[in-house]
Design a protein around this nucleic acid. Sequence first.
RNA 1: GGAAGGGUGCUUGAGAGGCCGAAAAGGACCGCCUGCUAAGCGGUUGAGGGUGAUUACAGCCCUCCGAGGGUUCAAAUCCCUCCCCUUCCGCCA
Length: 423
Amino acid sequence: MLDLRLIRQDSELIREMLRKRGEEAPLDELLELDNQRRKLISEVEQLKAKRNAVSDQVAQMKRNKQDASALIEEMKVVSQTIKDYDEQLRVIDEQLLDRQLRIPNIPHESVHVGTSADDNKEIRRWGEPRQFGHDPLPHWELGVNLDILDFDRAAKVTGARFYFLKGLGASLERALINFMLDVHTSEHGYQEVFPPFIVNKHSATGTGQLPKFGEDMFKLENLDYYLIPTAEVPVTNLYRDEILDGDRLPLYHVAYSACFRSEAGAYGRDTRGVIRVHQFNKVELVKFVMPETSYDELDKLVANAETILQKLGLPYRVTQMCTADLGFTAAKKLDLEVWMPSYGQYVEISSCSNFEAFQARRANIRFRREPGAKPEYVHTLNGSGVAIGRCLAAVIENYQQSDGSIEIPEVLRPYMRGLDKIS
RNA sequence: GGAAGGGUGCUUGAGAGGCCGAAAAGGACCGCCUGCUAAGCGGUUGAGGGUGAUUACAGCCCUCCGAGGGUUCAAAUCCCUCCCCUUCCGCCA
């Protein structure tokens, strides 16, 4: 959510920034509602001031055993008017908030203008894609051959875009989760949290999934509860409606969670393997920081995610999203893309964003620089550190051997009883 | 799922239609005092919004006692609905 004050003061600037992302936001409508709202407020508040003053008079007269019935009669009318105005105000507030919640974040000045994902920029690469002495197989063939992945039975048990991991495949998944959590907690200073995988609509609104993107989530029947699409939602909402002490910032959390996505509109894309599924695991990094530090914090966050891929020896590149590919909530976003032999290209495995105060304003997360200071909105950031399912696929494909077995990356071996391969 | 009791400021906790943004205590902060610390004394200590002012201080006003409705001239206080917490029972990992 953007600062209404800023929109009021400099609507042209906001309009221009939104245009860069390819959005036409209904700012005129918003400003008109804002105007109406303020006009109504000053009218109704005058009446309320009067009501309060007269109520005091009535109280005093009653104490003095005087007759206050004339005043009471007069106030009946005033009270009814207040009620009517309050109702009008409630409707306007609701409309205004709804409009505000549907306007995306504005890009940071360092974000280049583009019209689609094709305009995203590669920033750097790490590692060299391996030259195979054989035709590399995709993970869905390797995994099925080794009987560590089972898509057919998952389709029976649930449906399309689900899979079972079995035996050492399940171990490998678990090893990746533990490895990443350990690195981020012991080397990068993140505090681990284990969040609920179901959130209410306030939380989903706070991080920006609602009201516009409800279709992307699984909703529980007859409840205002949603399966989380990412741990970002519960972890960012940890401090919703709170004022944090400034000396607690920056606050770093790392969370493992399952993620659930309806993938509405993704029919026909990435239909094979574990790349695009309805349920996957992810280790997520979330930060709450002071505004002036948030872009440094973003760089550090990206570096923390890169460390994981480096330790796993997986080639990757870092790309910066252009204005058109920021998503709804981000002011700046960098992706990590891992080399996926079956695709013959780099595939997104982490997405790191600075939301600035966009989420903090929605979720009302503030801090005080020092005791007694005015509360200010924090800046929130998050990034995958990294997506487990895609990482498992990348390990399987990049570490495959000509005999169809898979070498286990060295850093994972302590997590897999010292085994060095899956065969 | 059944029964009972609760949700008040940073915390504990009083208030049971008008004098209550809210007693009291604790905490924190600022003074004074004091070799230092502690104690003592005095003071300060919530958020949001409107207006003002024109970019940041004041003043004035409104709202907020879990959330939302209702009754009333007037609600923390009475009524209704919902949410959350605690305890007991049932069921269960």
